[in-house]
Design a binder for these strands. Structure first.
Length: 882
RNA sequence: GCCCCCGUGGCGGAAUUGGUAGACGCGCCUGACUCAAAAUCAGGUUUCCUCACGGAAGUGUUGGUUCGAGUCCGACCGGGGGCACCA
């Protein structure tokens, strides 16, 4: 039998050729076996989830993929982890829901349309077909009957309906504002989608444009989204922290200042926000955003100000990279009257560092106690008044020159606030401002509303109609869904919907006159904000989901995905759930009970002499050198980085599964690296995992010849060796269960290696030992079920079972076998290990002490003297102190 | 700049949360099988001293708490991540 026929490694990855091999034990034919069991599971619909209120449910979900073309190793890792949980929970008796779908709208489809002249729909559905086949080859315990694609009108019609409900409830609105424009994708982006001033997909520097766009009122839930984070105790701390920072709650005050012009004529009020009302007496100027309405007003008649605003906007776009952009101001023809000292007037500026989007778009400047204000005041020669000083400083001589004093301290030069600390002063000044009617304590959030309009074709149409007479009106429910037209062209940049000859021309549903459809589509993050709800009743026509089904399955018990969605997708989903609650669709607050963020899959990078990147399969190792396969030229090996097409450090899951099998790929994904950390993909690691599969099959097959028949009753008593083997097996059950629950898959794998070694080394001598060997093997096979399901199913059958392992319960550990009668206790002399003693479990302290002191190493150290102290920790350690 | 996380053999990583550091795997070394290689099996593998028995040191550096510190506290060094004119 050739290696090829046995389903072994092909020479592409393993470079030792494919010559016939000498007779040896038949290898495990993974290809045949994996296909066989996948077919059985599918035919028996083993993984189809059916609501059953009598049984406890468990909803396992991995973040659904974008159908980009082919699955990558990140998917393999993600879905393997989810599948371990799903199969484990199923064995533990839960009614498991483990669905899969497609995040199918998005720009790559449009780019493909432009580059390859293929329609986005065709491209998307072809990719889905390819990737679905790939996922099926992994042997995942998915309920494919619930598959959905967000680009399907049967999906997005419900999304449009929900949007209309939100609109009615005041949670969706249109607003003209400065927005982030991605010049490469030709669309606007939400705040969360701009990273370091660049578009999250394209990396292009975003521009600012003033546009009227649809927004969802996520800020309505800002406080709840923040405070509820505390209750998400099965979420990573890191993610909760990132969301908390993003929401950015600040306590402070709004303060009203009267404005006058130089002649003292009243020019209205100016409202500012500050988190430091305690430093109000240190005010030396006011600053308004260049986008502030009052500034726009003045600019109308002031060419100098117009020029200043234009300059700021210019740097505004580039400022993202120039983080140390200089503070600049333009003096406005106003003076502001200090609200607490009516005799005091301070100058008013338009300034480039004040953001219109935060607070009120205006601030008071306190250069003594704020970095930015200090820089500004220094530049424009404004006074710096210290109003907070360190606790031990002298109020007469304390001054701020070089740098502002931003720490806690004692208030000075501030009238009724003098002598207080910062916190107390804040309370007192807010009370006074409120009393005087010139300000009030407020809470300010950094979070802004979610801008959801996108000027793109391949997305869910926004169901709105623009009528010159009636304004913006919703599409009547009976007309939903608003379907995307298929006949569109991609020969020019811009939105194909907008230039479609007929699509946008409709009658106004209110007045019947000529009107235009909204040609923007939704941000695709909306599609993924409720797909987990849709999975609970994916085929329901009349509503997004059935209440009972949804109530039974939701929330997602375990959600698994990349940490890159810590803010975007996870925050949007939390919002959407609350919006649905607001319009009465659900009573739930949170969609995801448990969250796990898996690490990335990394690989070394390879570069040829000419600097071009090489695929891992284009290189070979000869000794310690790495050379190019084609011409043996030297290759520079770079550090391991996240697998990416641009650096070509990718390994195709298809090829791995073809050459080594799905079980090997899964096993390797779970080995070694903790799942939340990055995983280094190595060829050695894969072949190691592959060898273990082969070894397991061999060990099990060999052991089976010694086993008593299936169902043999247990012996009356067990030999010493048999009991030891049983202990090992049952202990592994207990430990492994805990490891899986805690997402410690790498530790679980290590324990399985140990048990495999123990089983492999067991040479049964008596009948009870043979019985124990069968027990251990059966336990072992059940335990590997969630990780390498095909091999496990095969061995289960080989053990004589007629049932499907996938439908078998998880083994139970016998408590009696988990506890040892004797324990090994370490003995230390002055904290240093000197030896170990065997003691009965829970032996009394004095017995432990006596035994320890009798140890030759200890007696020698004591040299006849009595120890100063003996610390005894039962079952752990004895420390003899001299 | 602010906030958070992490530094353990040649490598990935364990360590019951203050109690025998280095489980398990990879790699490497030695041996068996083989004409030979691959595969497989057995043994070894933190460092230093010792033929060995054994001993000493050791978890980024440094100080502390403790009978006892990889684990707790302080300072520093290095790596990673998030936020960044958010008033």
């Amino acid at each position: 039998m050739t290696r090829e026929a046995a389903g072994g490694i092909r020479c592409g990855l393993c470079r030792f050729g494919s010559e016939p091999v000498s007779p040896q034990p038949p290898r495990y034919n993974f290809r045949e076996t994996e296909a066989k069991w996948q077919k059985v599971w599918e035919e028996r619909q083993t993984f189809q989830a059916v609501m059953d209120p009598a049984r406890p449910k468990y909803y396992v979900l991995e973040m659904f993929p974008y159908p980009s073309g082919r699955i990558h190793m990140g998917h393999v890792r993600n879905y393997t982890q989810g599948d371990v949980i799903a199969r484990y929970k199923r064995a533990k008796g839960f009614n498991v829901l483990h669905p899969m779908g497609w995040d199918a709208f998005g720009l790559p489809a449009e780019n493909a349309a432009m580059e390859k002249k293929v329609h986005p729909k065709k491209w998307t559905y072809e990719n889905i077909a390819t990737m679905k086949a790939q996922l099926k080859s992994m042997g995942l315990s998915l309920d494919w009957s619930r598959e959905l694609a967000t680009c399907d009108p049967t999906y997005y019609r419900h999304q449009q309906k929900m949007f209309l409900d939100f609109w009615k409830a005041g949670l969706a609105y249109r607003k003209e504002a400065w927005v982030n424009w991605d010049p490469v994708d030709n669309t606007v982006l939400a705040n969360e989608q701009v990273i370091e001033g660049k578009g999250w997909r394209t990396g292009a520097l975003v521009e600012r444009r003033k546009l009227t766009q649809w927004n969802l009122k996520i800020t309505h839930f800002a406080d709840e989204l923040l405070s509820r984070l505390d209750t998400l105790d099965r979420w990573p701390e890191k993610v909760r922290l990132m969301q908390a920072n993003w929401i950015g709650k600040s306590r402070g005050a709004r303060v009203f200042w009267d404005l006058t012009d130089a002649s003292g004529t009243d020019r209205g009020k100016l409202e500012i926000f500050t988190t430091r009302p305690d430093t109000l007496f240190g005010a030396s100027f006011m600053a308004l955003s260049v986008d502030h309405p009052r500034v726009a007003e003045l600019a109308a008649t002031d060419p100098g100000l117009q020029h200043f605003i234009a300059e700021c906007r210019k740097t505004g776009t580039a400022a993202a990279e120039l983080e140390t952009a200089e503070k600049q101001g333009y003096k406005l023809p106003f003076l502001a009257r200090h609200p607490l000292e009516p005799g005091r007037m301070v100058p008013v500026y338009a300034a480039n560092f004040v953001l219109m989007e935060y607070g009120t778009g205006a601030i008071f400047g306190c250069p003594g106690h704020d970095e930015r204000d200090h820089e500004f005041a220094t530049k424009y020669g404004l006074p710096i008044l210290p109003v907070v000083m360190p606790k031990d400083a002298d109020p007469k001589s304390f001054s701020v020159v070089e740098a502002p004093f931003v720490e806690d301290g004692i208030i000075v030069n501030s009238g009724f606030l003098d002598g207080l600390d910062v916190e107390a002063a804040k309370v007192k000044v807010i009370a006074r401002l409120e009393e005087m009617g010139v300000g009030k304590g407020t809470i300010q959030y950094r979070l802004r509303d979610w801008l959801v309009s996108r000027q793109r074709y391949w997305g869910c149409p926004i169901p709105a109609i623009h009528c010159d007479k009636c304004g913006v009106v919703p599409v009547p429910e009976k007309d939903l869904p608003v379907k995307l037209p298929d006949d569109v062209t991609f020969d020019r940049p811009g939105n194909p919907l907008d230039r479609h000859p007929t699509w946008k021309h409709v009658k106004c549903p209110t007045c019947g006159g000529d009107a235009r459809r909204e040609t923007d589509t939704f941000d695709t993050f909306i599609d993924s904000s409720w797909y987990f709800d849709r999975f609970t009743s994916p085929h329901l026509q009349t509503a997004p989901f059935d209440r009972d089904e949804n109530h039974y399955w939701m929330p997602v018990d375990q959600y698994i995905g990349g940490v890159e969605h810590a803010i975007l997708h996870l925050l949007y989903s939390r919002f959407w759930t609350r919006a649905m609650r607001e319009v009465g669709m659900t009573t739930r607050d949170e969609p995801f009970d448990g969250l796990f963020t898996q690490g990335m899959v990394c690989h070394e990078t390879y570069r040829a002499a000419d600097g071009t990147w090489l695929l891992p399969e284009e290189i070979e190792r000869s000794g310690s050198k790495v050379v190019r396969l084609s011409d043996k030229s030297p290759v520079e090996v770079g550090r391991s980085e996240k697998m990416s097409k641009s650096k070509k450090n990718v390994v195709d899951p298809d090829q791995i599964i073809r050459d080594y099998g799905a079980d090997t790929a899964r096993w390797f994904m779970l080995s070694d690296s903790p799942p939340e950390r990055d995983l280094e993909w190595t060829e050695a690691g894969v072949t190691g995992a592959w060898r273990f599969q082969q070894r397991l099959h061999r060990v099990a097959t060999e052991a089976m010849e010694l086993l008593p028949p299936i169902g043999t009753a247990g012996p009356a008593s067990f030999s010493e060796a048999a009991t030891e083997l049983r202990r090992a097996a049952h202990r592994t059950v207990a430990a492994l269960s805990a490891d899986i629950e805690a997402f410690h898959f790498n530790k679980a794998v290590a324990r399985l290696y140990e048990l495999a070694n123990t089983i492999g080394n067991a040479a049964p001598k008596d009948d009870s030992h043979k019985w124990a060997l069968r027990e251990a093997l059966e336990i072992f096979v059940r335990l590997i079920g969630p990780m390498t399901p095909h091999l496990a199913e095969e061995l289960w059958q080989a053990l004589g079972h007629k049932t499907l392992l996938a439908e078998e319960p998880w083994p139970a550990a016998e408590q009696a076998l988990l506890v040892d009668n004797t324990v090994t206790v370490a003995v230390q002399l002055n904290g240093k290990l000197r030896g170990t003693i065997q003691l009965a479990k829970d032996a009394p302290k004095d017995v432990a002490e006596k035994t320890a002191l009798a140890l030759p190493e200890i007696a020698r150290g004591l040299d006849g003297k009595a120890p100063k102290r003996v610390v005894v920790v039962p079952n752990r350690i004895v420390n003899v102190v001299l």
